[in-house]
Amino acid sequence: MSEPINVSMTVNGSRVSCGVEPRSTLADFLRQTLALTGTHTGCEMGVCGACLVVVDGRVVHSCLMFAVQAGGSVIETVEGLTERAAIADLQDAFHLRNALQCGFCTPGMLMTAYSLLSQPGIPTRDEIRDALSGNYCRCTGYEAIVDAIENVARDRDAASIAQTREEAGA
């Protein structure tokens, strides 16, 4: 059970290849082996959302997946999304709106927001709240998080309309 198995995957744009124990979760592998400690574990049973990461384009609970199951996958954590500025506007909006306190749930919140806002259109507040229901936060009471995501959705929509107009004009 604890004999390591060789696994290769792409994490935040870099090829990773190493031996992992079959029982090691993806969350523990990211945190302990790769020192990507922006991914957190809060419940280790897929409820709280602190461990969310992007696996092959989908946001998944890294505590519910074994590292060996991620072999061949493309994975992005909060560190990777930060470095390629994919969530810079969300991070700015969270910062300005004070949509975090202790920050432990925040990487997971950003993952959910990243996924939600990759859909077209502006989600309603209810839709944002619904999308966030797999993410527990004990500090904020959620409203500031909803506000921040809503603000980014509007800004992105406005920017996309402006770009469309610009392209049409050009």
């Binding site: 400690t37 560190e79 202790c102």
Partner: peptide, 21 residues
């Protein structure tokens, strides 16, 4: 005014005891 130290947490660069080795 927003919290200067919150940006670090937003970037996944928080340093919690859980993370320490």
């Amino acid at each position: 005014v927003p919290r200067p130290n919150a940006k670090r947490l937003l970037a996944g660069r928080g340093r919690y005891v859980t993370d320490f080795v």
